[in-house]
């Protein structure tokens, strides 16, 4: 896949001396959904704001579609739509006017039909003449998305799009993101909800304390990093694990009714066969078996706990 954003060795130190971004290198591919995952204060918003031209980088270079964001800012910014984290909207303007304003700002000639289509796709059409201040928080979020889409951007940044958003809007948003991707839009979203990255992203980047500590295809990440667990539902509960099982990473759960074996799914030899054989040697019988894969969340907690 073609690259659409190239970030090279970007640093950002804020005026007070706080370094929010440290030697960021990152490439975003055209047409992908990239989730930037990280705890609060990790530098997600700073990174996005830098790409969009709101924050000046202290050093490094960023190219969007081959154009430098400082020298060729007109080309790069025309390609980008940004939905900010905060609900920063006008108050007195109508929904239709504020979205038209955004389109103009990005240099596009007025196109009422297109704005109508965007508003309809976000269930905002019946609110088009409403002053923004009369809308609920969720509706304002939709307005911000409409504004970001008003100039038909090829790249869409969603900064914590579903933070504080109700379930319905969250589902709508996921639907929208998938729809946009089918149309070829590149989407970069930040979140600290793992669920979101897991559901939506093609690739995941983890940022912590201003550093990108990992970038990986989501599926690969899950497979590679995923600790698997085999849960053995015993016929008779065990009081303790016999010492002859010491070589296995075992634990007892549910008052000894379940024997849980943790293994690395990456390895060629998982040890499952050996374990089951050993169990039958000891006349320990079981009713059922199932396996669990750790979620991105567990992987994430693990990563942020011990930055590599």
């Amino acid at each position: 896949m073609q690259d659409i954003i190239n970030i090279e060795d970007v640093n950002k130190t804020y005026k007070g001396g706080f370094q929010a971004l440290k030697n960021i290198d990152l490439t975003i591919k055209k047409g992908e959904i990239f989730a930037l995952l990280g705890p609060n204060g990790a530098g997600k918003t700073t990174l996005i704001s830098t790409i969009c031209g709101i924050v000046n980088p202290s050093s490094g270079s960023i190219r969007v579609n081959g154009f430098d964001i400082e020298r060729d800012y007109r080309q790069t910014r025309s390609l980008i739509g940004l939905v900010p984290q905060e609900l920063t909207t006008d108050a007195f303007e109508s929904v239709f006017n504020t979205v038209s304003f955004s389109r103009g700002l990005f240099g596009k000639p007025a196109n009422a039909a297109y704005i109508e289509q965007v508003l309809k796709s976000l269930s905002l059409w019946d609110k088009k003449d409403e002053p923004i201040m009369n809308l609920s928080g969720g509706m304002k979020r939709r307005v911000l998305i409409a504004k970001a889409l008003s100039h038909e951007p090829e790249i869409l940044f969603l900064d914590e799009p579903t933070a504080g958003v109700d379930v319905e809007l969250r589902k709508d948003m996921w639907g929208l993101v998938h729809h946009l991707r089918q149309e070829g839009t590149t989407i970069i979203l930040t979140t600290h909800y793992i669920e979101e990255a897991e559901q939506m992203a093609d690739r995941v980047g983890v940022i912590s304390q201003g550093e990108i500590i990992l970038v990986e295809e989501k599926d690969e990440l899950m497979a590679k990093m995923g600790q698997k667990q085999l849960v053995i539902h015993l016929a008779e509960p065990l009081e303790a694990i016999p010492y002859t099982f010491d070589e296995f990473d075992l634990s007892l759960e549910e008052d000894g009714a379940n024997l849980v074996y943790s293994y690395d799914a990456r390895g060629n030899r998982t040890g499952i066969t050996r374990l089951l054989k050993r169990l039958s040697e000891h006349n320990i019988t079981f009713k059922d078996l199932d396996t669990k894969q750790s979620s991105l969340e567990e992987i994430f907690v693990e990563l942020v706990k011990q930055p590599s």
Binding site: S49, C52, G53, I54, Y73, R74, Q75, T76, R77, S78, I80, L82, P84, E86, T88, T89, D90, A91, S102, L105, F106, G107, K147
Partner: peptide, 14 residues
């Protein structure tokens, strides 16, 4: 003051 300036700053405008 309200933060809506983000849009002007991120627009392709000199």
């Amino acid at each position: 003051f309200t933060g809506t300036i983000y849009e002007v700053l991120s627009a392709p405008i000199s």
